[in-house]
């Protein structure tokens, strides 16, 4: 998926996560994570984000997340929504969301 602009999704409310994605040409995937539960779940949050980006075919992006204790499925949803917004694409392809 080709990102053309900044994409923001989610909230700072509890059990949610605020995701901001920014395209960066040729820069690979760069993650910055702040979480209430970073010690226990930092690695899981990272894995979910990377997995979802891969599934969407996003390779060059800066991702900034503030996690307020979101479940994996919520993290996935917010990453996907931010990516779709950054790509300026309305129609979701559910086949690739996995």
């Amino acid at each position: 998926m080709n990102l053309i602009q900044k994409g923001i999704a989610g909230t700072l409310e509890s059990s949610d996560i605020l995701v901001i994605v920014n395209p960066q040409a040729g820069g690979g995937v760069q993650l910055s994570i702040q979480s209430k539960v970073e010690k226990q779940f930092g690695a899981t949050i990272r894995r979910v984000i990377v997995e979802k980006l891969e599934a969407l075919g996003v390779t060059d992006v800066v991702v900034d997340v503030k996690d307020q204790g979101a479940l994996d499925c919520v993290i996935a949803a917010r990453v996907q929504a931010a990516v779709y917004r950054a790509a300026g694409v309305d129609k979701v392809n559910y086949e690739v969301l996995s």
Partner: peptide
């Protein structure tokens, strides 16, 4: 959570 709601919007 109101503080977080306005925080989200501000960010």
């Amino acid at each position: 959570e109101l503080s977080l709601v306005i925080g989200t919007e501000l960010v």
